[in-house]
Simulated scan of single mutants.
Amino acid sequence: MVASEPTRCLKADLRDADWWDGIWEDATVQAAQETGLSSFRGHCPWTVEQVLDSDWRPPIPRSAMIDSKAVRQQHRWPTRRY
């Protein structure tokens, strides 16, 4: 059996900036379709090492922290006094 294409190696893809750009573009298109949002960065802001680190998580944007604080303040439960 002769393969028509050589088997791609993911490790090689991970070192390829063009591959990352294509993956990022596909991901942002899908995210836009699923969320209705349209403001995504033009390139992946994280390094390959960060993305592959199972313990790493992207930082929460400051605007999200401010928004969630405002939401918490708007929906404060009354304080019980005994």
Rank of each mutant, 00 (worst) to 15 (best):
R72G: 09
A64Q: 06
R72W: 02
I23T: 06
R62L: 11
L52W: 01
R80M: 12
S68R: 14
T7Y: 06
T28D: 02
D16E: 10
D53E: 03
L37V: 00
S63K: 11
F40R: 02
Y82G: 14
E34D: 13
L52A: 09
S68A: 15
R57D: 04
R81K: 12
G36F: 02
A3Q: 12
R41T: 02
R62T: 08
S54K: 13
Q30M: 15
I23K: 13
T35L: 05
Q50D: 04
A27Q: 05
G36P: 02
R72P: 00
R72A: 15
L10M: 11
V51S: 06
A3P: 02
P59Q: 02
C9Q: 13
R81F: 09
W20S: 03
D55S: 14
S4D: 06
F40H: 02
K69D: 10
C44G: 03
R72Y: 03
A64M: 06
L52Q: 11
E25W: 09
P58D: 03
H75D: 06
D21W: 01
P6D: 07
D13M: 10
S38D: 10
H75G: 05
S4Y: 07
A17P: 09
D53W: 07
D67H: 12
S39D: 14
P59N: 04
P45D: 03
S54V: 13
D53M: 05
L14N: 07
G36A: 08
H75T: 13
M1I: 06
V71Q: 14
P58G: 03
K11G: 12
H43C: 06
L37K: 11
H75S: 10
R15P: 00
V51T: 12
A27G: 00
D18P: 00
E34S: 10
